[in-house]
């Protein structure tokens, strides 16, 4: 099953990078489910919301997808990013939780479904410049297409794509920056 997952996900990711949105959606949904299973298994004492880590991981996968070499397996790459983001999440909350370094990609997680609550990503979204924020909200939460969003705001589709791209990159960066601010706080305490 794992081998089949790997081959399928690699294929979807290659298609996505070439611009196939349907393949990318498929890739992201399946990856989200796997990462969710992985993260939930690792967070046993609470304190960190698994879904926040899932979302951070998806954003990191998105903005760093040029670091995946297409001739390499994609799942170990996904889990390496997920583990980095998980350790980050623990550190940010001042927790020193040991994560078994060795068993990352080898023990593949079971897919799991999302639970709903207040999210870190909303705070990151709120910090965006208004133009980017409204475009990202329109395409995500409000579920509009690029074309519908362009019509709603009276701007070109290219402008929507640029705002979306920059907005997502800025959100991903905010996750990283926030961690630094809090880490300093913890040192002072």
């Amino acid at each position: 099953m794992t081998g089949k997952d790997e081959a399928e996900l690699s294929r979807l990711m290659r298609a996505a990078i070439a611009g196939d949105e349907r393949a990318y959606a498929d890739f992201l949904h399946r990856t989200a489910a796997l990462v969710r299973g992985f993260v939930r298994r690792k967070i046993v004492h609470g304190g960190v919301d698994p879904e926040d880590v899932v979302q951070e991981t998806l954003l990191a996968i998105h903005v760093k997808r040029h670091t995946w070499r297409q001739d390499l397996a994609v799942l170990p790459w996904v889990y390496a990013i997920a583990r980095f983001k998980l350790i980050d999440a623990f550190r940010r909350r001042g927790r020193r939780v040991e994560i078994e370094i060795d068993e990352i990609a080898e023990t593949f997680a079971e897919p799991e479904a999302e639970t709903v609550s207040e999210r870190d990503i909303n705070r990151a979204l709120d910090g965006l410049p208004p133009a980017q924020r409204s475009v990202v909200s329109s395409v995500s939460v409000e579920g509009r297409s690029i074309g519908e969003t362009a019509a709603k705001f009276g701007i070109s589709e290219t402008a929507v794509r640029v705002s979306l791209h920059r907005g997502l990159a800025a959100i991903a960066k905010r996750f990283g920056a926030k961690q630094f601010g809090r880490a300093k706080q913890f040192k002072r305490e």
């Binding site: 996505a16 939460v141 979306l164 791209h165």
Partner: peptide, 18 residues
């Protein structure tokens, strides 16, 4: 924002020219 909503946004930004 739900994860499914986030995926919609990432998805619309699929193509990578990086």
């Amino acid at each position: 924002m739900r994860t499914d909503d986030l995926i919609k946004a990432l998805d619309a930004d699929a193509r990578s020219t990086a």
